Amino acid sequence: MEEAMGEFSAYTPLIINAAKAVIVLIVGWILAGFLSGMVRRRIVSHPRIDDTIGGFAASIVRWLVLLVTLIAVLQLFGIQATSLVAVLGAGTLAIGLALQGTLSDIAAGVMLIIFRPYKLGQFVDIGGTSGTVKDLNIFVTELVTPDNVQIILPNGKAWGTVITNFSAHSTRRLDLSFGIDYGDDADKAIQIVLDVAGADERVHKDPEPWVRVTNLGDSSVDLGVRLWCDAGDYWELKFHMLKTVKEAFDAGGISIPYPHSVEIQKAG
């Protein structure tokens, strides 16, 4: 009995330190979430600071608190911070090789924050992946597709590829094409499109709407249309123009031909 009590007493400091470590981890995890959330809210509420910086700064605060928590836990087991730094220094090469992708993501995240090719809430295409930017932290960029699918993109890949920002400017040009029959009056069709565009308040007067014959196709005379509008009105205006122009063509006797071929027979 005394021998068993002695063995238990030998393990008592380890058990106590393990319990302390669990408490420190829990407190550190909660504190990291609290501080990062507070930083995000403070930055987002500031009118002169972009919301994108809020998410990035909150991510940095979170990981710094977790790092300090880890060091505190190691010290409970007798591993001093100086010893930890020495070990990390000795294994810098191995750690660098193992974490080169992660370090690249962190560096890319810093570059994205500095140059800001996109911001929170903007619709972008990053290397063929499209979506609205929901979050940008030190490791990844989070996108949400129009059908509400989450996409997590490492910052290293985002910075190293082509970025198309559809929301960078306040206005956009809407390009449309309508095909009419070769027997129809092209000037009349052009005027119909201009009348439809002029009746819509979302279409800007400057630059003015542009409609021209742009191609003589196999089955149709193609009209090219260029309209300027606010970026937020782009898609609704496109859908409206397609429907309204079609109806106006029907009312005006302008036909939109199906693809067809003409057979010519020669006598003899």
Rank of each mutant, 00 (worst) to 15 (best):
K119M: 02
K119W: 01
L120T: 06
G121W: 04
Q122N: 01
F123C: 03
V124K: 01
G127K: 04
G128R: 03
G128S: 07
T129C: 03
T129R: 06
T129V: 13
T129H: 04
G131I: 01
T132E: 12
V133T: 08
V133M: 10
K134C: 03
D135M: 08
N137K: 10
N137F: 07
I138A: 07
V140Y: 15
T141M: 00
E142I: 05
L143T: 05
L143P: 01
T145G: 10
P146Y: 10
P146G: 13
N148V: 09
Q150K: 14
L153W: 04
L153C: 02
P154D: 05
G156P: 00
G156V: 00
W159Q: 00
W159N: 00
G160K: 11
T161I: 04
T161F: 07
V162L: 07
N165P: 03
N165M: 07
N165E: 10
N165G: 04
F166N: 11
F166M: 03
S167N: 12
S167C: 08
A168E: 14
A168V: 05
A168W: 05
H169P: 01
T171S: 15
R173Y: 10
R173Q: 15
L174N: 04
S177P: 06
F178W: 02
F178E: 01
G179K: 06
D181G: 03
D181Y: 07
D181L: 06
Y182T: 07
D184M: 01
K188A: 12
K188P: 01
K188Q: 12
I190R: 14
I190G: 05
L194A: 03
V196Q: 00
V196P: 05
A199C: 13
A199M: 05
R202L: 13
H204P: 06
H204K: 13
K205V: 15
K205W: 03
K205S: 10
E208G: 14
P209F: 06
P209Q: 12
P209T: 10
P209R: 00
P209N: 04
W210K: 12
V211Y: 12
R212F: 12
V213C: 05
N215V: 10
D218C: 09
V221A: 00
D222N: 05
D222K: 01
L223G: 00
L223T: 08
G224T: 08
R226I: 08
L227Q: 14
W228V: 05
C229D: 07
C229I: 01
G232M: 14
G232Y: 12
Y234W: 10
W235N: 13
W235M: 03
W235A: 10
E236D: 15
E236N: 14
L237A: 07
F239I: 09
F239C: 11
M241S: 12
M241G: 04
K243L: 12
V245K: 02
E247H: 08
G252E: 04
I254L: 10
S255I: 11
S255L: 08
Y258H: 08
V262Y: 13
V262N: 09
E263C: 05
I264W: 15
K266L: 13
